[in-house]
Design a protein around this nucleic acid. Structure first.
Length: 206
DNA sequence: TATACGATCACCT
DNA sequence: GGTGATCGTATAC
């Protein structure tokens, strides 16, 4: 299985956000692989994007987004949740892709243990949920996904444009441009086997 | 030093 | 569909 390298992330953020759909997010804990296919992403692009954390400029919190592509930007929000982003574009330009949902593949039992009492479909169908299921927190902020042994991405599947839906981003504030930009991407579920297929859409939206 | 609020989730009705 | 949890950030004083 081939790991996604620097050149994958060093591109236009919207391209990376679309092409991350279908790829495999891998978390290794004590030698065990937890993984899943990415099924929903959002792009956050530059200081001019009012919804992007970097719209306030370079701060201790946002500095990772200004760094080289391929790093993990993990932030803490609402006093209890973590979200995982992948830094994109050239070093010095702040941009990233938020991983909003994955469909579990390996390590399902561990994910269940990390989110006790939740049905399978709710293990990783949200940005904070997948971080809880995969035990991702700020200790992984700034980790290089191109070289890390505990968090990385594997090339798995190419999803054609025809199978991708774009909508405005979830829960963002800001100006009209930020509210209207169709920078959320996901794969619609297959009607013949909702929630059962190799891929499924997020429950919300769409 | 103090304050307001957020790229969410879970639980309630 | 409404709301409380809970604390790191940014910003204002």
């Amino acid at each position: 299985m081939s790991r996604l390298g620097r050149e994958f992330f060093a591109r236009d953020t919207l391209t990376v956000a679309r092409e991350l759909l279908g790829q495999r997010l891998v978390r290794v804990i004590e030698g065990q692989r937890l993984s899943g296919r990415i099924v929903e992403t959002e792009a956050y692009i530059g200081e001019e994007d009012a919804a992007c954390h970097a719209s306030v400029g370079r701060t201790p919190r946002t500095k990772v987004m200004y760094g080289p592509p391929g790093q993990a930007y993990v932030y803490f929000i609402y006093g209890m949740h973590h979200c995982l982003n992948v830094v994109t574009e050239r070093e010095g330009f702040p941009a990233a892709v938020l991983i909003r949902a994955i469909e579990p593949e390996e390590g399902l039992e561990v994910m269940r243990a990390n989110r006790p009492g939740r049905p399978n479909v709710e293990l990783t169908n949200g940005p904070a949920k997948l971080c809880q299921a995969l035990r991702i927190d700020r200790r992984l902020n700034g980790v290089d996904l191109c070289t890390s042994d505990e968090l990385f991405l594997e090339g798995a599947e190419t999803v054609s444009e025809a199978h991708i839906v774009a909508t405005p981003r979830v829960g963002v504030r800001g100006d009209e441009a930020a509210l209207n930009a169709p920078w959320r991407f996901y794969m619609p579920s297959r009607p013949e086997e909702p929630g059962q297929g190799a891929f499924c859409a997020p429950l919300r939206g769409g």
